[in-house]
Design a protein around this nucleic acid. Structure first.
Lengths: 259, 259
DNA sequence: TGACGTCACTTGTCCTTACGAGTTAGGACT
DNA sequence: AGTCCTAACTCGTAAGGACAAGTGACGTCA
């Protein structure tokens, strides 16, 4: 029966004790923590107190609890997937953006028409309630088991102004970029990164564990005269993925990755 | 007494009902939700059930609860602070990185010597247990009330190999960059973005609300021959800040005429 | 008028009890 | 031997009670 000290509520003291045991290595990653009953006996508290302490540790992302089995120390492994945003400029002024096209589509993309919200309107420099093409896709990287939600939004004004095959560019942004580039446009882009807790549907779709935020990327591609053409959004679990932005002196040879 | 339907546990049904009411606008942002007692009466459930439902909504970041006052709908406002990472290359091949130097230091930076961990060793392309200079600073942006934790890590090997004033570069990375650039080095950098839930000390230091992840930036600056020179880390609450990476096509790329 | 104490509200903590549900191993029956 | 059932563990859900602690308003008293 290890003793409990001052700071604050009982369950916080229990949580602190367990947390310390985890961080000090007394409980190794992926190992099984004592059961609720054992923790009750160990600290001389009731079950709600133990569960409250465990809830706190779950919210911190320190442990995972599986019904009928027990609590496990979460392994603090690095994200399995690194999404590279390498930006290098070739001699003729074009950008090369190898976006790690490792994704598979798990189902047919769904296209629709919608309108700007406050957020998307701001990014696209439009007012609210402006008409948009939309396309949502569910992506999957089989090598790491990572899921992601992808969305493309194109203002109708833009889609109408350019000779394209209906909603096709919405489905295949890469083709859209290529088409524009070949057409002589000089594209620039800006990418915004946010992090937040997932909504319930995002949590299930992305199959996220407890206390796992999502990374939310919004990439806007601009025309030469700074007019926003297309907005791409990517949502992905922060436990699985990280982003790297790399600026290299142009025309670097392949970079050495050390494992 | 609005009725409750099928899916799953009672508290989840209550949570779903409240969530729906919030998202549908029945409860406006910043408005006060019914008290626990009122919710008990409304849905005909016990207090633990109501509290469990509320806990779920807190974990989702939908509501904030203040002791003695009640539960409030969290306003889904945009992050107040946008950290810009604009990368444009001037004609002579230099990078300009206006990092938004709006930060104030709230206390004297603390310098120390430490060693690489698994993560930092990987970023710096060093083994584990390699000696480092370290410097931690607490930053504050008075215009938005945003706090951030900044850390600089420089391998001793690098610090010794360059004529500098002791730990000074550790305190002032900008000076370090300027010095290197003036010395003819062509710097490249790569920045990794992660998101995760804060540890308790980060939560208190950054004064984070419930269910608020932190954005964790790791920027490594490389020498011409790809040798990592300095690692900067920035931790900041994702409720307050977002990152934008912007690539502009300002001028024609420079020829590499200079040795 | 002003200061202060009280009271009624809120959420926070902690306990007891009970049962439901997922998991696993071992024993009984075929 | 193989199959299946059961028992004993795990955590999940739900209810009830009691008191502590933070907040704000109101009323009393100096």
């Amino acid at each position: 029966m290890s003793e409990i000290q001052r700071p604050g509520a009982l369950y916080q003291q229990v949580a602190a004790a367990i947390r310390e045991a985890i961080l000090s290595g007394e409980f190794a990653p992926d190992s099984l923590l004592p059961s609720e009953a054992q923790l009750m006996a160990r600290y001389g508290v009731s079950r709600p107190t133990v569960r409250n302490a465990i809830a706190a540790l779950r919210a911190e992302g320190l442990i995972d609890v599986r019904h009928g089995k027990g609590s496990f120390v979460r392994s603090d492994g690095q994200p399995a997937l690194t999404i590279e945003r390498r930006i290098s400029r070739t001699a003729d002024g074009k950008f090369v953006m190898p976006n790690g096209d490792v994704w598979q589509e798990t189902e047919e993309p769904s296209t629709y028409r919608t309108h700007t919200t406050k957020t998307t309107g701001q990014l696209l420099q439009l007012g609210e309630e402006e008409a948009l093409f939309g396309c949502d896709r569910l992506l999957f990287d089989p090598s790491t088991g990572t899921r992601a939600m992808h969305r493309t939004l194109i203002p109708l004004v833009v889609a109408d102004g350019i000779p394209l095959l209906g909603e096709e560019p919405c489905k295949r942004p890469a083709a859209f970029y290529r088409l524009l580039t070949e057409d002589g446009h000089k594209l620039t882009w800006s990418e915004t990164v946010r992090a937040r807790m997932p909504l319930p549907d995002e949590r299930t779709t992305l199959q996220l564990p407890d206390a796992t935020p999502i990374l939310h990327l919004s990439r806007v591609t601009h025309d030469t005269d700074d007019r926003p053409l297309i907005l791409e959004e990517l949502r992905i679990g922060a436990d699985r993925a990280e982003l790297t932005y790399r600026i290299t002196a142009d025309k670097q040879p392949a970079r050495r990755t050390r494992a």
